[in-house]
Structures are given as C-alpha cells and as structure tokens.
C-alpha cells in the first residue's frame, strides 16, 4: 500500500512492525527503516510511557471547580491548562508559576517530591542567599566525593568552592 506511511516520521513507507516495551506497557509501531533503527538502537528520545503523566493530566480535568480552571492561561507564553493536559509539555519558565499548584501535585506523583536537591545554579548577579545555597550544595558534593575517595572529583569541587569564596 503506497499510503502506508511510518508512524513516527509520517514521510517514508513503513516496512517494520515493532512493539516497544516500556515499563510493562506495550507500544506498537509500524515504522520505516530509519525510524526503526532509531527506536531499536539506543535512542535519545524520551520514554513516552515512563511516567504517570497522562493519568495525572486526565485527573486534572476532574478537579473541583475553581481549582482546575481549564482556561487559566500563562501570561508569558499563553499556554492553557487544556493544552498542557493534551501535550504534557509546559511552554516557558513562567508556566511553573502560573500552574504551580497543579504542578506541585504532579511533581509529587511523578518524582515523589517537589524539592530539588542537586546542583544549584548561580545567576550572573547572585544574591547572598543564592551564593550560600550553591556553597551548601557544593559542600555536600565535596563531602560525598571525599567519602567515595574520589579525589579527582573532590579537587574539582574544591576549585568551584574557592572560586565562589573569591566573589
């Protein structure tokens, strides 16, 4: 059939039937060879079935009135809750403030919490508290590297700490 096109790119003829498993979910694809190679070998694309995102997004729709107003809209990028529910993608950094209460619940479900404990980004003109937070995170990492007897890493982290102390 000439109009039997690849599920992924939609442009080349599909020749390979593949079922992908992702965490006990099956996804069937009818793919062209290029896309089969991309999916079959290592892939950089995001696992689509790896999160409870779709469930959660469906639930947002059933929320009590007032809480989940589907027309609430990000003032920066114009994303609405309705579109977010369909795509699972936010539109800009400001969306995280616009939809904060929804996101907080979503993040708890997806990640088990809402508090980032990794790297602390230091903006070009940092405040004292931002610098302290970054210092604290670096010290945690340094402590960990020393415990693991990873001295190369520890030296690198000390350099970062020193450069911060000089500011």
């Amino acid at each position: 059939m000439p109009d039997d096109l690849c599920d992924n790119c939609g442009s080349r003829p599909a020749t390979v039937n593949l079922t992908q498993i992702e965490n006990n979910e099956m996804f069937s694809y009818h793919l062209c060879e290029d896309c089969a190679a991309e999916k079959g070998l290592e892939t950089t694309s995001e696992p689509s079935g790896s999160s409870p995102l779709p469930d959660f997004l469906a639930q947002i729709g059933d929320e009590p009135r007032g809480e989940g107003d589907p027309d609430s809209e990000c003032s920066f990028c114009g994303l609405t809750l309705t579109v977010f529910r369909e795509t699972g993608r936010l539109g800009c950094p400001h969306c995280y403030e616009t939809f904060e209460s929804h996101l907080r619940r979503l993040l708890r479900r997806v990640h088990g919490g809402t508090k980032h404990v990794g790297k602390i980004y230091l903006p070009p003109d940092p405040t004292v508290s931002e610098m302290e937070k970054r210092m604290e995170a670096l010290r945690r990492k340094l402590h960990r590297a020393v415990e693991a007897e990873d001295f190369e890493r520890a030296a690198e982290l000390r350099d970062r700490i020193h450069s911060l102390e000089l500011v």
């Binding site: 995102l53 950094p93 995280y96 993040l107 980032h116 070009p124």
Partner: peptide, 24 residues
C-alpha cells in the same frame, strides 16, 4: 551556566519543558 541566564527555580530546580525532567 556562567554565561547564560538559566531558568532555575528555588524549589523545583532547573525548569524543563516536560515536568518529568525538572529538577536536575
């Protein structure tokens, strides 16, 4: 990060398009 203004949130960390990537 020294040169570019990253979108970073004091609680959520590095902000991403998909909430499944946020934080680190």
């Amino acid at each position: 990060g020294r040169e570019l203004p990253y979108a970073f949130h004091h609680e959520f960390g590095f902000l991403t398009s998909c909430p499944t990537n946020v934080g680190s």
